[in-house]
Computed example of a mutant assay.
Amino acid sequence: MDSQQRSPNRLLARLSQANFDLVGGHLRTTQLVQSAELVAAGDDLVDAYFPHGGILSLIVRLTGGEATEVAMVGRDSVFGASAALVGPRALTTAVVQLPGACSALPVRRLKEAADQSTSLREILMRHEQAIFVQAQQSAGCIASHPAMARLARWLLRARDTSGIDELDFTQEFLGQMLGVRRNAVSYVATELQNRGTIRFNRGRILITDATRLKAIACECYATVQNELSQLKRGPLK
Rank of each mutant, 00 (worst) to 15 (best):
R6K: 05
P8Y: 01
A13S: 13
R14A: 10
Q17C: 06
A18S: 13
A18T: 10
N19H: 06
L22F: 08
L22V: 05
V23D: 03
G24Q: 01
G24I: 01
H26M: 13
L27H: 01
T29P: 05
T30F: 06
T30P: 02
L38R: 07
A40V: 14
A40I: 12
G42S: 05
D43F: 06
Y49S: 03
H52C: 05
G53C: 06
G54S: 00
I55Q: 05
I55C: 00
L56F: 01
I59S: 08
I59H: 08
V60P: 05
L62E: 14
G64F: 01
G65Y: 03
A67E: 15
E69R: 11
V70I: 11
A71Q: 05
M72T: 09
M72G: 03
V73E: 04
G74E: 03
V78F: 01
F79G: 02
G80I: 00
A83I: 01
G87W: 07
G87F: 07
R89Q: 11
T92G: 02
T92P: 02
A94T: 04
V96G: 00
P99I: 01
C102Y: 02
R109S: 07
R109K: 08
R109H: 08
L110I: 03
K111T: 12
E112P: 06
E112V: 08
A114L: 00
D115L: 10
S117L: 07
S117E: 03
S119P: 14
R121K: 15
I123P: 10
I123Y: 13
L124D: 08
R126P: 09
A130N: 05
I131A: 15
F132C: 11
F132T: 15
V133W: 02
Q136R: 14
A139E: 14
A139R: 13
A139Q: 13
C141N: 13
R150F: 04
R153G: 15
R157W: 11
R157H: 13
A158M: 07
S162I: 01
E166L: 09
L167A: 07
F169N: 06
Q171C: 10
F173V: 15
L174N: 06
G175L: 06
G175C: 02
Q176A: 11
L178A: 04
L178Y: 01
G179A: 02
V180E: 04
R181F: 08
R182Q: 09
N183H: 15
A184M: 14
A184K: 15
V185R: 11
S186M: 07
Y187W: 14
Q193L: 12
N194P: 00
N194I: 02
G196L: 07
I198G: 05
R199P: 06
F200T: 14
F200D: 11
F200N: 12
N201T: 10
R204M: 08
R204I: 07
L206E: 15
I207N: 06
A210T: 10
A210N: 07
A215R: 14
A217R: 09
A217C: 04
C218T: 05
C218N: 09
E227H: 08
E227M: 12
L228H: 13
L228C: 14
L231S: 08
K232S: 15
R233T: 15
P235H: 13
